[in-house]
Amino acid sequence: MAEEKESLFSKNNLKLLTGPLSSSNPITVQVLGICSALAVTAKVESAIVMALAVTIVVGVANMAISLLRNTIPNRIRIIVQLLVVATLVIMVDQILKAFSYGVSKQLSVYVGLIITNCIVMGRMEAFGLANKPWPSLLDGLGNGLGYGMILVIIAVVRELFGAGTITLPGIGELQIIPQGLYECGYENNGFFLMPPMALIIVAVIIWIQRSRNKDLIKK
């Protein structure tokens, strides 16, 4: 069978990478991975680290499952997927503990809970099991980035209004809201540091996205 050779970054492949950033975003359109979006977004630093961890896990796991897809018996595919994800998550967890213990402490149980992040299992079931390794890798990375993008947006809003700072990995806490404003009577909004506010921000992002992209409403 002379299959037409597709270039590595053809239009179709690139779409796998960029689609999840907008019209098929895992959080705002597929509504997956909400729990961690509420839990780790009080500080930008933890959101960025979480986003990277999930991106790596989804990408690599998706590719691994795709490589194994012809040898996995259908009946036990979930357990094989879990095994792959668990291995990767433990590796990420150990690396975090070794190289940035502070962040690992902050993320606490949520690194381990990447295993249960619906995005990971969802992509393997929906994509990795049926596609070739390279598109699977791109699809995984794309979804991870789409998830991470929303996470970082939420975290920036929450930390900026809740604490007046932005904490970046490797740089530390930056005071964004000037001290002069506090002297004029400005106060940090404590509500933004509570998880319910993350849910409301997600809702607002969904609202904005759907009013800009009407196609999403009819689904």
């Binding site: 106060e187 909004n189 404590g190 509500f191 933004f192 509570m194």
Partner: peptide, 10 residues
């Protein structure tokens, strides 16, 4: 409720 949770000091 928003005021109560956002600015408890006031």
């Amino acid at each position: 409720a928003f005021l109560f949770f956002a600015y408890p000091g006031n």
